[in-house]
């Protein structure tokens, strides 16, 4: 590179644009035009490179691994919502057509709410008493339960890392 010669990346950017003062310089400068010519030749050679063929049994290898997997689960949200809405509608219709059914369900729901509240209060008392008496065994048990839950969740969800990495929104 001689003094006054531009940075090659800036010059290449101007080559793409097709005009500019650096390009004018390159036309007059032997050093820069030689580099540009090398780049042109290199581009030509690079464009002629081809991807190599994969091994002949590549598709079979992939499909053997695919066959060992469970079929991909396709979550159809709209279909699920439609089924849920239909079931709910049918339930309401049945209750309404039975006459007096709605009030019975209301009484049952109220009763269930009261039972649940008393159960919650009782559980809270039992846990606080247990904690006061046997804190360490209880903490260990809770930790083991937490670990089992996390392990089960991981098995259920599988490896979804690929999507955060793929950077293509799904």
């Amino acid at each position: 590179m001689t003094q006054g010669c531009p940075d090659i990346e800036v010059l290449l950017a101007e080559v793409v644009e097709g005009s500019g003062p650096l390009l004018e310089h390159a036309r007059a400068c032997e050093h820069c035009s030689a580099i540009l010519e090398e780049h042109r030749q290199l581009e030509k050679d690079l464009f002629r490179l081809a991807d190599p063929l994969p091994p002949p049994d590549f598709t079979q290898l992939v499909m053997a691994r695919v066959a060992a997997q469970r079929a991909p689960m396709h979550l159809n949200v709209s279909l699920g919502l439609a089924i849920a809405a239909t079931a709910f509608g049918l339930g309401i219709f049945t209750l309404a057509s039975a006459g007096g059914g709605v009030s019975t369900v209301g009484a049952l729901a109220g009763s269930a709410l009261i039972t649940a509240k008393s159960f919650w209060v009782g559980t809270q008392k039992a846990v606080s008493l247990l904690w006061a008496a046997e804190a360490l065994p209880m903490a260990v048990s809770l930790f083991i339960i937490l670990l089992i839950c996390l392990f089960a969740l991981k098995r259920l969800v599988g490896d979804s890392r690929v999507f955060s990495e793929a950077r293509i929104s799904g």
């Binding site: 992939v62 691994r65 997997q69 689960m73 396709h74 979550l75 490896d159 690929v162 793929a166 293509i168």
Partner: peptide, 27 residues
């Protein structure tokens, strides 16, 4: 092979309006 396997396992997350080859390429 692993990229194709992962693509198969997560096909439900793939947006079919985008090029499939680019998606697998990114994986």
């Amino acid at each position: 092979q692993e990229a194709f396997l992962r693509a198969y396992q997560h096909l439900n997350r793939y947006d079919e309006n985008k090029p499939f080859d680019l998606w697998v390429m990114a994986i």
